[in-house]
Design a binder for these strands. Sequence first.
DNA 1: GCTGGCCCTGACGCCGACGTCAAGGCCTAC
DNA 2: GTAGGCCTTGACGTCGGCGTCAGGGCCAGC
Lengths: 148, 148
Amino acid sequence: MRIGELADRVGTTTRTLRYYESRGLLPARRDGNGHRTYGEADVRLLEQIRTLQDFGFDLEETRPFVECLRSGHPAGDACPASLAVYRRKLGELDSLIDELTSVRAEVGAQLARAERAMAGLAADARAPGGPEPRCELGDTTEGKGVRG
Amino acid sequence: MRIGELADRVGTTTRTLRYYESRGLLPARRDGNGHRTYGEADVRLLEQIRTLQDFGFDLEETRPFVECLRSGHPAGDACPASLAVYRRKLGELDSLIDELTSVRAEVGAQLARAERAMAGLAADARAPGGPEPRCELGDTTEGKGVRG
DNA sequence: GCTGGCCCTGACGCCGACGTCAAGGCCTAC
DNA sequence: GTAGGCCTTGACGTCGGCGTCAGGGCCAGC
């Protein structure tokens, strides 16, 4: 199998496969013309790489899985080094999710506060004297705690 | 106030301020020597930018907030365009958190499965005949559903 | 007068995972 | 023979948010 066919089979591009090879991740044999040649095992290596990429693993993190497969194991995660990557990734995911969740809460709170403020201004515009206070950009010493 | 002092006051670098200016986000007046000059209002603009950056907003997304402040509003999120960015960001955060959560679950399941498999192999190695089945990389048609 | 400190512009470097273009080789079909 | 299709290597482009360097100016203090 040549590079174009392999790329088609796993739904990627020849450029990607050459890039993987340049990173030492997916070496290829060559035929008489210097063309890269791949076998069925390479399809599985590539599928392993793409699966992990879909999970957000970067290329270097897929290396233990690929080497595990190439060393004859039936699965890329049948080696301790792969499990270590799994565990590290789980930790990263957990802390990232935690962080994003707290950011989400903060942004949500800011939005709610700003919406209340806008509603208040709109009410002011309907009820009392003028439409808007026209705040100057002076040294009004405003703080971030305009919550209530 | 010149660029170095402003950078110190908000805890960033002069390079960053020049970059913001190049993006049209934080223009500066110039003194007789061509040096950038800033006022207190710029401190607040910058703090707004940095706060949003900490939330993961990219620079373009901070622009409505900055323009809102510069147009005289007391807060960067006192304008509809800013609220729209808040809402869009909340949506992005929600879907990102969802995605990461599902990835986390999948990776966790893969780790658990792989750990069970390794434990099984270890038990095999202790109990029966050989230490490892020495799987060839043949067409064994393995699927992804090796869960149970 | 000279050193040190701040400022200026312009431009290249970085990271990751490729996309894209250039220039050419080999093989097949017509 | 020539057009088309696949392959090769090499190298530059992309995106964001700056870091870092080169080369030069202005001003204060000793």
